[in-house]
Measured scan of single mutants.
Amino acid sequence: HNLTITQGKLFFHYNPKLCLSEIHKMEEVSGTKGRQERNDIALKTNGDQASCENELLKFSYIRTSFDKILLRWEPYWPPDFRDLLGFMLFYKEAPYQNVTEFDGQDACGSNSWTVVDIDPPLRSNDPKSQNHPGWLMRGLKPWTQYAIFVKTLVTFSDERRTYGAKSDIIYVQTDATNPSVPLDPISVSNSSSQIILKWKPPSDPNGNITHYLVFWERQAEDSELFELDYCLKGLKLPSRTWSPPFESEDSQKHNQSEYEDSAGECCSCPKTDSQILKELEESSFRKTFEDYLHNVVFVPRKTSSGTGAEDPRPSRKRRSLGDVGNVTVAVPTVAAFPNTSSTSVPTSPEEHRPFEKVVNKESLVISGLRHFTGYRIELQACNQDTPEERCSVAAYVSARTMPEAKADDIVGPVTHEIFENNVVHLMWQEPKEPNGLIVLYEVSYRRYGDEELHLCVSRKHFALERGCRLRGLSPGNYSVRIRATSLAGNGSWTEPTYFYVTDYLDVPSNIA
């Protein structure tokens, strides 16, 4: 807008934040220059609390790290170098490059900038070799853009010569660093050979998330399962459950009422301010606690030095998902009996873990797994792929695949051998790939016309006998059925096997 004052003059007093240069501009645009008398524009009460600059400061050096910015700028000295009290560095987070010096300023003089007072450097006698002032900004957020400017702080001049310097606002972004852990990993099994893994992005990506790394490792069953005799009275049979499938998407929606109208769909109840505040506090606490764990609990591995020492970490090797089922080394339970199943799973520490690289999504279907087997899954978020990966501390989750139908069934015939004193040795093959492992066998036998009897055969007993022995049988026709019990439950009964026990007292003698 054009402003013209045809008559009258300007009068400025007691404006401590208004620089004289701005008042002189007002004289020019209003056409009143030359009308004012000496005392109409006070030299001592206008701009006496402001830094009124008329020179431009330029930054000469900028260096960044993930949490620091090192700045240096060209030296500046007023005509009387004693008038320079120091520099004021202003900075704040700036997602967009549209910041002005006066953003967030209120009537009390406060604003949204963080201000650092910096002492002037030592003055050199040689004007050509003056030290460049600077400042190291610490405690910054990774991968965050900051708006920065600097200006001088000078003393009051009796001659009211307006001098000083100020830089333009520059924008500097800190470097990326390792992201925080992925949030809320959930693993479920939808079949006997697959596990579905879902997660949420890290709360602090500290860069642009480029991919996720998912490692999985087959877990050995508890050692007590191999040692305890679950045929003993009072000892509860062990059981394991597989990871249940995901709930429906509708039930997972946030901010939804727990109660549904019987007449149909209901609208979600909005969260109160107290609920939102509580969630923010919980989120802040979780982030602080995660940072504490990362800094205190997890110790970084030592990389190899120039002395030739090897990095103890196993090298990563990509495998196809079809090879995942046989990740671990199978060892027989008892070496003397080769027909026992290889369900003991000690994992070799030198073995390469299978892994998958996930790009542009937060889910993965891990296939080719062994049925009813526990897996430990390790999830890392990465925001750099080359020249070397920059990934987060791992988040861990466990899951067990679903049982395989008929995996616990005894394959092959049940054979028998009759000894003296009416002892019958029953023999059968253990299931080759049971659900988890076989903890015991149930032997059901009966003599024709009598009630059915049951015998429990422990895992250890089966390994020693290759089956079991029935003792003290009365003469007669017998039928026997056997079924295995694994961590997933009972298998199917075998087809009945028949044998006849004679009275050993009636056996004919070869003595003449």
Results as ranks from 00 to 15, higher is better:
203 S>Y: 05
206 N>G: 09
209 I>L: 11
210 T>L: 11
211 H>K: 09
213 L>H: 07
214 V>W: 00
217 E>C: 13
219 Q>P: 06
220 A>V: 09
221 E>G: 15
222 D>V: 11
222 D>P: 06
223 S>W: 11
223 S>L: 09
225 L>Y: 04
226 F>W: 03
226 F>M: 09
227 E>F: 11
227 E>W: 09
232 L>N: 14
233 K>A: 14
233 K>Y: 12
235 L>C: 08
235 L>T: 04
236 K>A: 13
238 P>A: 07
239 S>G: 03
239 S>I: 07
239 S>A: 14
245 P>G: 12
247 E>N: 14
249 E>K: 14
249 E>T: 10
255 N>E: 07
257 S>C: 05
259 Y>T: 13
260 E>K: 01
261 D>P: 12
261 D>K: 08
264 G>V: 12
266 C>R: 09
271 K>L: 12
272 T>M: 09
273 D>K: 07
273 D>E: 11
275 Q>N: 07
275 Q>A: 12
276 I>S: 09
276 I>G: 09
277 L>Q: 09
278 K>T: 15
280 L>H: 15
281 E>P: 04
283 S>D: 15
288 T>F: 03
288 T>A: 04
291 D>T: 10
295 N>D: 08
296 V>Q: 11
296 V>M: 10
297 V>L: 08
297 V>N: 06
298 F>K: 02
300 P>N: 05
302 K>L: 10
302 K>T: 12
302 K>A: 04
305 S>H: 03
306 G>Y: 09
307 T>Y: 12
307 T>D: 15
307 T>R: 13
309 A>R: 11
311 D>G: 11
311 D>L: 14
311 D>E: 15
312 P>L: 14
313 R>T: 11
315 S>L: 10
319 R>N: 10
319 R>D: 04
320 S>V: 11
324 V>A: 12
327 V>T: 08
329 V>H: 06
333 T>A: 15
335 A>P: 12
337 F>H: 07
337 F>T: 13
337 F>Y: 12
337 F>V: 10
338 P>G: 10
339 N>V: 11
341 S>A: 04
341 S>T: 09
344 S>V: 08
347 T>M: 15
347 T>N: 04
349 P>Y: 12
350 E>I: 06
353 R>D: 15
354 P>A: 08
354 P>E: 11
354 P>G: 12
356 E>R: 10
357 K>F: 14
358 V>S: 07
358 V>M: 03
358 V>R: 07
359 V>T: 12
360 N>S: 09
360 N>K: 13
361 K>P: 09
362 E>V: 13
362 E>Y: 14
363 S>C: 13
365 V>R: 11
366 I>W: 01
368 G>C: 04
371 H>T: 14
371 H>F: 13
372 F>H: 12
375 Y>M: 06
376 R>T: 10
377 I>V: 07
379 L>C: 09
379 L>N: 01
380 Q>S: 07
380 Q>T: 15
382 C>R: 00
383 N>Y: 04
384 Q>H: 07
385 D>C: 12
385 D>E: 13
386 T>L: 15
387 P>A: 10
389 E>N: 12
389 E>M: 15
391 C>K: 02
393 V>G: 03
394 A>K: 12
396 Y>P: 06
397 V>G: 09
400 R>T: 05
401 T>S: 05
402 M>A: 10
403 P>H: 02
403 P>Y: 08
406 K>T: 12
406 K>W: 11
408 D>I: 01
410 I>R: 02
414 V>Y: 01
416 H>V: 12
416 H>N: 06
417 E>T: 12
418 I>A: 09
418 I>E: 10
420 E>G: 04
429 Q>M: 15
430 E>V: 09
431 P>R: 01
432 K>Q: 07
436 G>A: 13
440 L>N: 14
440 L>Y: 13
446 R>W: 04
448 Y>D: 15
448 Y>H: 10
449 G>N: 08
452 E>C: 12
454 H>Y: 15
458 S>D: 04
459 R>H: 15
462 F>I: 03
462 F>M: 12
463 A>V: 10
465 E>T: 11
469 R>F: 15
470 L>S: 01
470 L>T: 02
470 L>V: 14
471 R>K: 12
472 G>R: 06
472 G>W: 10
475 P>E: 05
476 G>V: 01
476 G>Q: 00
477 N>K: 08
477 N>Q: 04
478 Y>S: 00
479 S>E: 12
480 V>W: 05
480 V>R: 01
481 R>Q: 03
482 I>W: 00
482 I>S: 01
484 A>L: 02
487 L>S: 14
491 G>W: 00
492 S>R: 04
492 S>Y: 02
495 E>P: 10
496 P>F: 09
497 T>E: 08
498 Y>D: 07
501 V>E: 01
502 T>M: 15
504 Y>S: 13
506 D>P: 15
510 N>Q: 08
